[in-house]
Nucleic acid binder design. Structure first.
Lengths: 225, 225
DNA sequence: GTCTGTTTGAAACATACGTTTGAAGGCCTG
DNA sequence: CAGGCCTTCAAACGTATGTTTCAAACAGAC
């Protein structure tokens, strides 16, 4: 119990604090005092603050990427031969994320926010770590997207994938704040699962949108509906 | 020339560094050495680091919100009575942003990234500053969006606006890098205006997407096209 | 029980930060 | 050219950070 208890307590506290405040804004002293362990424990068990950040991500991301691979396997098997549709691909991703075993009730939302922060806060070391550690499931997801949108030119698909990434990373990175605002303003409670259920159709519709608009509608707007 | 030169040099350096690295990750010493001014100049001219952050935003946002108000005025006048369409509203916004006089070639993309950071990094003071300083044009944009999407529930609209914000802020914030990647990979040159021309239809299609999906299509994907 | 390797503990380390100070410099008004 | 005001400058302040140190506590094996 000795080691694993301390290590897990640090990871739990770090995960939560990073998600709340970002990486640079969270000090090791905040983490160790929340985890009720000695300050030196972080450097003893992980080596450095950056390595702790990596460990926080790895604890979730490694099982998740395995789950995701399985989901993609099943999806491709079900479609035997046929490439999966865009909706199926997006759902395989979100389903895998939502179905992950969660340490507590906040589990998934905390991690979504961390992923958003990883993309947003330019922590060079983190991006490098994620790229070289999880490039395979990411590349596979890209391949599926390409097969699901054969009608798009490479350039259009490129930009629309960026738009999807942006909407997702941005929303998830501030999901807690957004959920709070929504509850205060409209008195509605929301879960991350519900956000995902709203996000996927939005993304799918955007990916399948009519062509790039060439001339701004200065005197007569071209309706989309 | 004495004061204004120092003040502007600080603002230029701060703007660029904040956009590159975020707020907490950028020190006053980085800013002052990039601007080639004395360290104390920031606290002398602005009072504090937080006030400098506010000034960086105000320098762009104040003229922009004026331009935007004019654009909305013209739009509503053109539509006399009729609420502007979603496309028209989105175009009024992006046109105003793109048409702003820019200090340098990076102008617009730097500021988009800053806006994204303002939303993402939980800088309480910044959000408070922006809310109480620019609530009017923001509220007007929201009102126009509401009138352009009467078919959406408040909650659906809220989330889809977040998705739009995310796709925009994220894409624009890294537009330089993305443009470079695209040129290297596919040999295609792009401008920020072209990105906007691709982004607006994507956003409009997302806003007008069919309802929130309640059940994941586990064995037969519901196509959107 | 004693020894060995691992884990914790309190304290200190060096460094970086935002901010303040007080003297020196420059510029315009009289 | 003298005085006053705004600006710059080098230096220091106090505080907070990530990391290191080394002794104490602990565990399990013999």
């Amino acid at each position: 119990m000795a080691q694993s208890d301390t290590v897990d307590r640090i990871l739990d506290a770090a995960e939560e604090l990073f998600a709340e405040r970002g990486f640079s804004e969270t000090s090791l002293r905040m983490i160790t005092s929340k985890a009720k362990v000695n300050l030196a424990a972080v450097n003893y068990h992980f080596g450095s603050k950056n390595a702790l950040i990596h460990a926080v991500f790895a604890r979730f991301l490694t099982p998740f990427s395995a789950t995701l691979e399985t989901a993609f396997d099943e999806l491709e098997e079900r479609c035997d031969g046929q490439p999966p549709t865009l909706n199926q691909t997006l759902w395989a991703l979100t389903e895998s994320a939502v179905r992950m075993p969660q340490r507590n009730e906040k589990g998934i939302s905390i991690f979504m926010r961390l992923l958003g922060l990883a993309y947003t806060q330019s922590q060079g070391h983190l991006r490098k770590f994620l790229e070289q550690e999880y490039s395979e499931p990411f590349g596979r997801f890209m391949r599926l997207l390409k097969e699901a949108t054969p009608e798009l030119s490479s350039v259009d698909r490129y930009w629309r994938i960026q738009f999807m990434l942006g909407a997702t990373a941005f929303t998830m990175s501030s999901s807690d704040a957004l959920i709070d605002i929504l509850e205060n303003k409209l008195g509605v409670e929301t879960t991350v699962q519900e956000i995902a259920a709203r996000l996927v159709p939005f993304l799918a519709a955007g990916m399948k949108a009519p062509d790039k608009m060439l001339v701004p509608p200065t005197n007569s707007g071209v309706s989309v509906a």
